[in-house]
Deep mutational scan, measured.
Amino acid sequence: SHCAGCKEEIKHGQSLLALDKQWHVSCFKCQTCSVILTGEYISKDGVPYCESDYHAQF
């Protein structure tokens, strides 16, 4: 499978399933500020955001 963030193949190591896609753990980050999302996040149109950036933009 391929990472939804960087589009590279996910080989051995940690990956996560979010928004119905596979991601490298380090690629699942806020679209705006690039903080790596480990806990709470909000998505809009399949794109992840941290809570503060989501509320600031939408």
Rank of each mutant, 00 (worst) to 15 (best):
C27D: 00
Y49S: 03
E9A: 12
Y41L: 03
K7C: 09
A4R: 08
F28H: 04
H2I: 13
H55V: 11
Q22K: 14
Y49D: 02
A4N: 15
Y49Q: 04
W23L: 02
A18W: 03
G13E: 09
D45G: 11
A56L: 10
D53W: 00
T32M: 06
G5Q: 06
P48G: 06
G13V: 10
E8G: 12
S15G: 15
Y54N: 08
F28L: 08
C33T: 01
S43E: 15
E51P: 12
H24V: 00
I36H: 04
H55L: 09
C3R: 00
K29L: 01
I36Y: 05
H55I: 11
Y41E: 04
H55P: 11
A56H: 10
G46C: 06
P48L: 08
Y54Q: 08
G5H: 04
L37M: 06
K11V: 12
T32A: 09
C30M: 00
D53K: 06
F28N: 00
C33P: 02
C33D: 02
E40V: 10
C27R: 02
D53R: 03
S43Q: 11
Y49A: 02
G46E: 02
A56D: 12
L17C: 11
H24A: 00
Q31V: 11
H24C: 07
E8M: 13
K44F: 06
Q57S: 15
G13K: 03
F28S: 01
Y41D: 03
W23M: 02
L37D: 03
D20C: 05
V35G: 11
C33M: 01
A4Q: 14
Q14F: 02
E9P: 12
H2E: 06
P48F: 05
C3M: 01
F28V: 03
H55Q: 15
K29A: 04
V35P: 00
L16C: 06
Q14H: 06
S15E: 15
T38A: 12
C33I: 01
E51N: 11
A18I: 07
C30K: 01
K21S: 15
V25F: 11
S26L: 09
Y41A: 05
C6P: 00
S26D: 14
K11F: 08
I10Q: 01
Y49L: 07
Y54V: 05
D45W: 05
G5V: 09
D53G: 04
I42H: 10
L37A: 04
S26H: 10
V35F: 06
L19C: 11
H2V: 04
Q57G: 12
A4P: 10
S26I: 07
G5K: 13
G13D: 13
S15R: 07
H24T: 00
S26W: 11
E51S: 08
C30H: 00
L16V: 12
S1I: 06
A4Y: 15
C50G: 01
S1Y: 08
A4M: 11
C50E: 01
T32S: 10
A56R: 15
S34V: 00
V47N: 09
Y49T: 04
K44M: 10
E40G: 07
C3L: 01
E40D: 13
K29Y: 02
G46H: 03
V47G: 06
S34F: 14
S52Q: 09
K11Q: 12
L19Q: 04
S34K: 15
S26G: 13
K7S: 10
S52M: 04
W23D: 03
D20E: 15
L19E: 06
C30Y: 00
T32W: 12
C3H: 01
Q22C: 12
E8F: 09
I36N: 13
A18V: 11
A18T: 07
K11M: 14
L37Y: 00
C6L: 00
A4F: 15
H55G: 10
K29D: 02
I42Q: 14
A4E: 02
A18Y: 07
L37F: 01
E8A: 14
C33A: 01
H12V: 10
C3D: 00
I10A: 04
A18Q: 10
T32V: 13
S43L: 11
S1V: 09
P48Q: 12
C50D: 01
S26E: 11
H24Y: 01
K11T: 12
W23Y: 13
D20M: 12
V47K: 07
H2W: 03
D20N: 14
K29M: 03
D20P: 05
E51H: 06
E40Q: 05
F28A: 03
I10S: 04
K11I: 11
I42W: 09
A56Y: 11
G13S: 10
W23P: 02
A18K: 15
E9L: 12
Y49F: 05
S15C: 07
T32I: 13
V47M: 09
A4C: 11
Y54L: 05
F58Q: 00
K29C: 10
Y54S: 10
S43Y: 14
S43K: 07
C27Y: 00
Q31M: 04
C30R: 01
